[in-house]
């Protein structure tokens, strides 16, 4: 098998000047060309931070303190802003969570999409605009020739997310990072946007890193799933395996907390929640960070952080082979 398109090895991110505040504690992920990897987990588990680290866009005050990110066979210079500018928008596109806030209110749609093209390619304005119209057609916006002159406030949330997707795909990147692309949209629009992403992926052969907490989307879209908890990956499997035989208690908790109509057995509660919340970064427990919320926790869980072995990081994980 050839080298993966993107591979993240042991990525660590911490608050600058505070070695104790480890936000990412050695995350490893990899994505092949054309593949979709979903990263799931509760808010604050570090999934967005992972994607921002790949883009070299960590918020002020955070720093990458370890790990290697390789993209298309070369190290990605994530701390070198000038070098990363040639990657952002051209090799890696990104779609964000809040379409209502993702577009600059004072520039027309056409200008904003064309800006990516102008930044990375030497084309005339007319040629760039023609490509913008094509792109807007591709993301199935009605009347693209009119929309390029419109301003964001005249578009709906779903339309704006299509514009953001067009922007991310304008230079035909190899990888699209979609950070909660549909969370802010209503359900019917969610489905349309995900179908659009799926179709575009088929057409263009791009890989997608899908960050979400919506397991329904994962089931539809992803080839593989990585589950994150409190700054590290706790489980990874193909989508089919993960849903069929979740190993980590946290994954099982997530699945139990997801409504799955028609699968409910008599006497079973409709939804089970995972007790408690993700602990604050300053109050992380010893050993396994999921321990305080885990029903299966035993003495060893308090002593050491479980290593990631055979697709799961849990002392008490049920081996997949044993699952029928």
């Amino acid at each position: 098998m050839s080298a993966p398109l993107l591979s993240i090895a042991d990525l660590k991110v911490r608050i600058r000047g505070n070695p104790q505040a480890r936000l990412l504690r050695g995350v490893s992920l990899s994505i092949d060309r054309g593949e979709t990897l979903a990263v799931v987990g509760e808010s604050g588990c570090g999934k967005s931070l992972t994607s921002l680290a790949v883009m070299g866009l960590l918020p002020d005050g955070l720093e990458k303190s370890g790990g290697v990110i390789r993209f298309d066979g070369a190290d990605l210079p994530v701390t070198d802003n000038e070098a990363m500018r040639k990657v952002r928008g051209r090799r890696i596109g990104m779609v964000f969570q809040e379409p209502m806030a993702a577009l600059n209110p004072v520039f027309s749609i056409g200008d904003q999409v064309a800006e990516v093209i102008h930044e990375h390619e030497a084309v005339s304005h007319a040629a760039a605009m023609a490509r913008v119209v094509d792109l807007l057609t591709q993301v199935q916006l009605p009347e693209p020739a009119r929309i390029i002159h419109e301003y964001p406030h005249r578009l709906s949330g779903g339309q704006r997310q299509r514009v953001v997707i067009a922007m991310a795909l304008a230079c035909r990147p190899d990888l699209l990072i979609a950070d909660e692309p549909t969370t802010a949209l209503d359900v019917t629009v969610q489905a349309q946007i995900m179908r659009l992403l799926h179709d575009l992926q088929d057409d263009m052969g791009i890989a997608i890193l899908l960050i979400t907490h919506n397991l329904g989307l994962v089931a539809q879209m992803a080839d593989r799933v990585a589950v994150m908890y409190a700054g590290r990956k706790v489980e990874e499997a193909t989508t089919r395996m993960l849903f069929a035989a979740p190993q980590h208690p946290y994954t099982r908790g997530l699945l139990a907390a997801t409504p799955r109509p028609g699968r409910r057995r008599p006497g079973e509660p409709p939804l089970t929640e995972i007790p408690g919340v993700v602990p604050a970064i300053t109050e992380m427990p010893s050993g396994c960070r999921f321990r305080p919320r885990c029903m299966l926790a035993s003495d060893i869980c308090a002593l050491e952080d479980p290593p990631f072995v055979d697709g799961v990081a849990c002392h008490r994980a049920v081996s997949r082979e044993l699952v029928p």
Partner: peptide
């Protein structure tokens, strides 16, 4: 601090 500034950075344009 607004989202569209991060989006602009994600396009690869200069600071």
């Amino acid at each position: 601090s607004l989202d569209y500034i991060r989006v602009a950075r994600a396009k690869g344009i200069s600071e």
